[in-house]
Every structure is written in C-alpha cells, then in structure tokens.
Amino acid sequence: MVMKTKCSSITKERIFAASLLIPCFVFVCIFAFYPILYSFFLSLHRIILGLPSIGQPFIGLENYRELLHDRIALRSLITTFAFVSVSTFFEILFGLIIALVINRHFRGRGLVRAAILVPWAIPTVVSAQMWRFICNDNYGFLNYILFGADISKYRAWLADPFFAFAAIVTADVWKTSSFAALLILAGLQTIPDELYETAKIDGANAWQRFRRITLPLIKPAILIALLFRTIDAFRVFDLVFVMTQGGPADSTNVLQFYGYKKIFAEGFMGYGSTISVLVFITVFVLSLVYIRLIRTRLFTET
C-alpha cells in the first residue's frame, strides 16, 4: 500500500517535472535541433535563391563532393583553425597571467577585476569597429604609436594579409582573455593556501611553487578554458564582418563568414548549408570532448 502511493507520487513528480520542462523543450527543439537537421536536409539539395526556376532538386551528396574540391573552403578551414589556435593560445596565456594577478588579495581588487571585465562586456561589433579604427591607415592610433608624426611610414594594416589576420586575433584576444582568466581563476581559488605555506617553509621559491603546485592543480581549469575558447573562437563572425569582410586575399575568410556569404549573399542555400554542416560537425566533435571532460562534475552533482 505504502509502496504503491510512493510509486505513484514518483510518477506524478516525474510528470510534473516533465511538464515544467516543456517550454524549454519546445524552444530548443524547434529553434535549435530542428534547424540542424534541416540544414542537413538542405545540404542534400540544390537551392539557389537567385534562380528560383531550378526548383529544389535533390542531388544527394553532390554538394559534399563539391565541398571537397572547394579550395576556398579548404583555405577557409585552415584560416579558421589558425585563428582558433593562435587566439586561444594567447587567450590562455594572458588569461593565466590575469588570473594569477586578480587571485591575490590587494586593495582595489574589485576595481581591477571590473576593469578587466570591460573588454569582455563590450559588444563584439563595437570592439571590431574600435580595432578597425585603431588600425586605420590615416587616423589610426597604432600608426601614431609606432611612427608618431612621420606620416610617410604610416601603414594600412588591414590591407596586409598577415596584419589583417593579426588584427582579428588581437581584437579577439583583447576581448576574451578576461573570460579565460575567470575560468582559470575559479580553478585557482580551489587551491588551499596551506599548500603554499608548507611549500614556502620547505624553501620552494615562487617559480617552484607555481610549477609544482599551481600549474598541476589548475590544469583542469585551464583545459576547460582552452576547450571553451576553442569552440567559441570557431564561431568568430562579427569581427570579420566589420573589420575585413574576409579580405585581404581571403586571409580572414573564416568558415562562419564564408558560409554566411554563400547562403545569404550569393544565395546558394544548398551548398552553403553544406558548409554549415561541416562547421557543426567540427564543433560537435569538440563539444563532445568538452562534455566528456566536465562530465564527472555533471554526475557528481546530479
């Protein structure tokens, strides 16, 4: 008798729980999972917005075959990976330094932390316009710092494939290092002070303490920051749209921008969707690794 009521109360609770999840479920399914499947569906068709007369013929994996031979897509993939690895590397590096600094106790720590968060909060579009202006060949701050009033040396930074790429990386690193710092900081704060005290008594110098205690203990946090930044960097779009529109010489033509151009500017909805799927799969694989890594936490908490 008792067992039965308990059972039914559990079922009731489950039904209740499920019903509370419905709104979330509806949104996520209709506007996130369904679109992914739909992208895949579109990628199997030839759909050209500029040529409605060809209809929407099913062409199987034709688009994927084309993608394999698309040198621009390949180049774009390489550019994206280069962007991801370079910017993530610097973000983690600076993030680590920043985290070590703000983990200390000192007066005005709150203000310093807020100041560091400012770049993170600034809309990407704003930071893109800002860096674009800084790199401007005539009125830019960068030229002024480097060459002062010597106008003849002024350079058009965004005209150079290498520097344009570097500018995008810089803008991204500037904006998101603080985010990486926060994730690492969370790891730093779990380290008990006693560990350092003991090490100090044992005569370990600052570097040794960092090498032997800090680094190993914040490794998981760094890993998470790393993966998180990787995935986020993969989605870079605003910076490219505003600063370079993919140029010069495609040096900043990242996958998200290329896909946007294909689908929305050139109207190749089918082929563009193939790129979407490619981007999705890449990010999906990365995400799986990520979820794997934090899974332990997920289960211990549930």
Binding site: V28, A32, P35, S39, R235, Y260, S273, F280
Partner: peptide, 25 residues
C-alpha cells in the same frame, strides 16, 4: 545528464549551422 548535456551542446552551436533554417522558419 542527457538534458544538461544537450543544453550544453546547444550553447555551442555555431550560428551559421542553424541560421539558414531559422531564417526560413
């Protein structure tokens, strides 16, 4: 776990991979 995991997955979606269909919807 599955629900939390898939939410996490959604948060990592690149915009481009859902942009076309969302636009169509």
């Amino acid at each position: 776990g599955v629900i939390m995991g898939s939410l996490l997955l959604v948060s990592m979606f690149p915009q481009i991979s859902i942009a076309g269909p969302v636009w169509k919807i």
